[in-house]
Design a protein around this nucleic acid. Structure first.
Length: 357
DNA sequence: GACCCGTGGCT
DNA sequence: TAGCCAAGGGT
């Protein structure tokens, strides 16, 4: 097992002292003809090394002075703290994650602590973060960490990837941010910065392409510690400056190198499909989950299936929300079945509904 | 690749 | 106001 960051050890992800300054070596990407053609089809001509070196310097310098002070970036953070933050940050803004993350770290400071809890506790303490299946997967990951890795978050990318709820992004993020490994992190922020600054497009393609991955790998600084810092710096730039809706180009450290700006900020090539909400199963499931979280006793099924006709006082606020949706009974039935099938809810011997555990 | 899965702040 | 969007993963 490779050494992990210990308390008090420098944080290669955020400590300026770990940043190797301006001694960054960049090599040209592999020049295999097929890859060149593939890449050229997906973005503007491959960036020249001087431009890339300038971007390295400007973005990392910008990060040095503008990085947010987040607890999962603290010098004494643990791999488990990083992993929990990455789960919570999946599709969820930092401001909403912060209080919930602190609560979880108090309740379950080690993977074994969470593994010993019930999945129902995990789902309840997930609160209103959204996508509660993440709580189930994080709990399952904690169990797997105890069973397969002696209760220590693994540092190996493939071992991380094998954990429930850990995909390519989260595996790379934990490798890099918790262990300082050299991995290429690709998230929606990095994809957007790359699309604009390098490829000259307003938005990245709908799905992650192989060419995009190769481009991200080719952009990695040669120096390992600098590469670690590069990942987090580009992500932060995408989160704070190169945002999806109204990018703050006026304060961008690579405005002069940006291919999208140089091209006159062309419009997106497609219109992102909006996320429907009103009347969807997701809305109904969310409201039912709110009832289960708020409930202090098992919930009679009729309270969930006919909320407007059932006077049940066990979760008044959440019940009011559920009634307000006005979802038809068959939809509510389908949703309850789905929640039970997904192990987000369970029935007790009397048929009443509870959080699992 | 398309689609599903929560939630709330922002414009 | 209604829609957009956020450190994705699983199917």
């Amino acid at each position: 097992m490779r050494p992990r960051l210990l308390k008090g050890e420098p944080n290669p992800g955020t400590d300026p002292a770990h940043y190797s300054g301006h001694v960054m070596n960049f090599s040209n990407p592999p020049a295999a003809p097929s890859e060149q053609a593939d890449a050229a089809a997906d973005h503007a001509p491959w960036p020249d090394p001087d431009t890339v070196r300038t971007m390295h310097r400007h973005i990392i310098d910008w990060f040095t002075w503008n990085a947010r002070d987040l607890p999962w970036r603290a010098p004494d953070r643990t791999p488990w703290q990083v992993m929990v933050s990455e789960f919570m940050l999946q599709q969820t803004p930092v401001v909403r994650v912060l209080p919930q993350w602190k609560r979880w770290m108090q309740l379950w400071p080690e993977p074994s602590d969470l593994a010993s809890a019930t999945t129902g506790d995990a789902v309840r303490e997930w609160g209103r973060l959204g996508y509660p299946r993440r709580a189930l997967r994080l709990h399952a990951a904690a169990v797997a960490i105890v069973e397969r890795h002696g209760g220590e978050v693994p540092s190996d990318y493939d071992e991380l990837l094998a954990l429930p709820g850990v995909g390519s992004y989260t595996a790379a993020a934990v490798s890099v941010f918790a262990f300082g490994d050299r991995q290429t992190v690709i998230d929606t922020n990095i994809r957007r910065v790359q699309a604009r600054a390098i490829s000259g497009k307003a938005l990245p393609s709908k799905g992650l392409t192989a060419a995009e991955t190769r481009l991200a790998e080719s952009l990695m600084p040669d120096d390992d510690a600098t590469a670690v810092r590069w990942n987090i710096a580009v992500m932060e730039l995408g989160a704070l400056v190169c945002t999806a809706k109204s990018p703050r180009c006026d304060i961008c450290p690579v405005l002069d190198q940006c291919a999208w700006v140089a091209a006159g900020r062309p419009e997106p090539e497609y219109v992102p499909r909006g996320q429907a909400w009103k009347g969807t199963d997701r809305q109904a499931r969310g409201a039912m989950m709110a009832v289960l979280r708020e409930a202090t006793e098992p919930v009679p099924p009729e309270a969930l299936l006919s909320p407007e006709r059932t006077a049940w006082k066990g979760a008044p606020h959440a019940m009011e929300q559920l009634r307000a949706i006005g979802a038809p009974g068959d939809q509510l039935e389908r949703c309850l079945e789905g929640l039970v099938r997904d192990a987000l809810a369970s029935r007790d011997p009397e048929g009443r509904v509870t959080l699992p555990g």
